[in-house]
């Protein structure tokens, strides 16, 4: 799942300072789940912006909408009527959502209210951690299902560095050392031989941007 977080209010205010009426658009998928851009957050941000404008002596009018998935052209179509009534759109979707709306409604400026941070999972309510770097060449078969590329602070491919300390990471002693976790997992599965294998550094230059995947027709 894509994890995002709201930008500081100051940044958002600057983006939309020139407008009198805007539409805030939430997304009902990833960013709802990570509490950043669902209908609830749309309501709170709209209210906070109205108050902020009033505090500065102005007035802001807001419309609100939340679509099922902002990254789908068809799904943002329902915003058409509302977008016609406003000067700009503030999207509480991930970067893909912002761009989908911007592509579909080219005449209207679309601004991001969130910073799209990473692919991750919830550890507990309200806490999300990055556990996939979307590197495009999955390595998890060799590491017991634990990704050292993102979960090791140094992204090491061949076992822990010298800074591993009783299962914790020297970069951030709060965090687990990914390679200790990998070792324990492989030990449990009787696959410690994998630790002896050498993997050459990966060639990230070969990654083509923008990524593109075309599936075979189903």
């Amino acid at each position: 799942m894509i994890i995002a977080e709201r930008k500081p209010l100051e940044d958002i205010k600057q983006m939309i300072a020139q407008y009198k009426k805007i539409l805030l658009v939430g997304c009902g998928t990833c960013v709802t789940v990570c509490w950043a851009g669902g209908e609830k957050e749309v309501g709170i941000l709209a209210s906070q912006l109205r108050l902020a404008f009033r505090r500065d002596g102005g007035e802001l009018e807001t419309l609100e909408a939340t679509v099922e998935r902002q990254c789908e052209k068809e799904m943002v179509e329902e915003l058409k009527d509302k977008i016609q009534q406003v000067e700009a759109v503030l999207s509480l979707g991930c970067g893909a959502g912002v761009q989908t709306i911007a592509d579909r409604f080219e005449e209207t400026p679309v601004y991001p209210a969130l910073n799209t941070k990473f692919v991750g999972m919830p550890e507990r309510e309200g806490l999300w951690i990055e556990n996939c770097g979307a590197c495009g060449d999955c390595f998890l078969d060799r590491t017991g299902g634990i990704c050292p590329i993102v979960r090791c602070a140094k992204g090491l491919l061949n076992g822990p560095c010298g800074g591993t300390n009783k299962g914790k990471c020297e970069v951030d002693p709060e965090k687990d050392c990914a390679w200790t976790l990998i070792y324990r997992r492989l030990e449990k599965q009787g696959r410690l031989d994998l630790m002896r294998k050498y993997y050459p550094p990966r060639n990230f230059q070969a990654v083509v941007r923008p990524g593109k995947i075309e599936a075979q027709r189903v």
Binding site: G28, E39, K40
Partner: peptide, 14 residues
């Protein structure tokens, strides 16, 4: 038991 905590926390206002 009707506390309404779920309604308050639901990020989708569902």
């Amino acid at each position: 038991q009707g506390c309404g905590i779920c309604a308050a926390v639901c990020p989708a206002k569902a």
